[in-house]
Simulated scan of single mutants.
Amino acid sequence: MSIVAPTDPPSPATPAWEIVPLGHTGWRICDATRGHTDPSRMVAYAEKSEIGAIEVLWLRSPCPNRSRYRDLDELLADLDAAVAAAEVDRSTRPFEIPHFPPEK
């Protein structure tokens, strides 16, 4: 059994997150808009700890800065925000790296 977070309709620009249960306390999070043979389909592994927090191992970028969440809804909202922020950042010019002559 897997759960797919709803989108209208899924496209590469708006990922649909597929949550696949792994036992009683673990989940695999996949990008449902990518093919089953695409290695970038795997987004993260999540597992509920003994204290009830969800610990996340991110497998690809863009990903949120956090790795601990209260519930799956909070995790998916943070993942959506990270993907949206990455799309905005791609359109901006990168920072200039200052170049200095070698020291003598």
Rank of each mutant, 00 (worst) to 15 (best):
D38H: 10
E50Q: 14
V20W: 03
C30W: 02
S67M: 06
A77M: 07
V56R: 08
I19P: 01
I97K: 14
A53V: 11
A53W: 00
A77W: 05
I97E: 15
D78Q: 08
S2P: 00
T92F: 13
I54F: 13
E103F: 04
V88E: 09
T92Y: 12
K48Q: 15
E18D: 07
H24I: 00
E18Q: 15
D73G: 04
I29G: 04
A46I: 13
F100A: 10
V83N: 01
A46W: 12
D78I: 02
A46G: 15
S49P: 07
P64D: 05
I3Y: 07
H99R: 15
T37F: 01
H99P: 00
I54D: 11
R93I: 14
A81Y: 02
E47N: 15
A84W: 01
R90A: 09
W58A: 03
V20A: 09
D38R: 08
H36Q: 10
A77I: 04
Y45L: 15
L79E: 01
I51S: 14
A46Y: 11
D71I: 01
A16V: 06
S91C: 06
E87A: 10
D38L: 06
D89S: 09
T37M: 06
R68V: 04
H24K: 12
R60A: 11
L76K: 03
S40V: 05
M1P: 03
W17R: 04
R66W: 02
L76T: 05
P6S: 10
H36D: 12
Y69T: 05
W27A: 12
V56S: 09
T25W: 11
P10Q: 05
K104T: 00
S67Q: 11
D73M: 01
L59F: 05
L59P: 02
S61Q: 13
R68M: 09
R60W: 04
P15S: 06
P64N: 06
C63G: 06
P12L: 04
K48F: 14
P9L: 05
T92M: 12
V88G: 02
L22G: 13
N65G: 09
T25H: 15
I3H: 07
D8S: 14
I97P: 07
C30L: 15
P21H: 09
A16M: 02
I97R: 15
I51L: 12
A81L: 09
L22T: 12
P101R: 12
S49N: 15
Y45G: 11
D71P: 01
D89A: 14
R70C: 00
V56T: 10
S11C: 10
M42Y: 11
R93T: 15
G35M: 07
D38N: 14
K104Q: 00
W17G: 01
E50R: 14
A5L: 10
R60L: 05
P10Y: 05
I19K: 02
A46C: 13
S61D: 11
L57P: 00
W27M: 11
R41Q: 11
S91H: 10
S49C: 13
I3K: 01
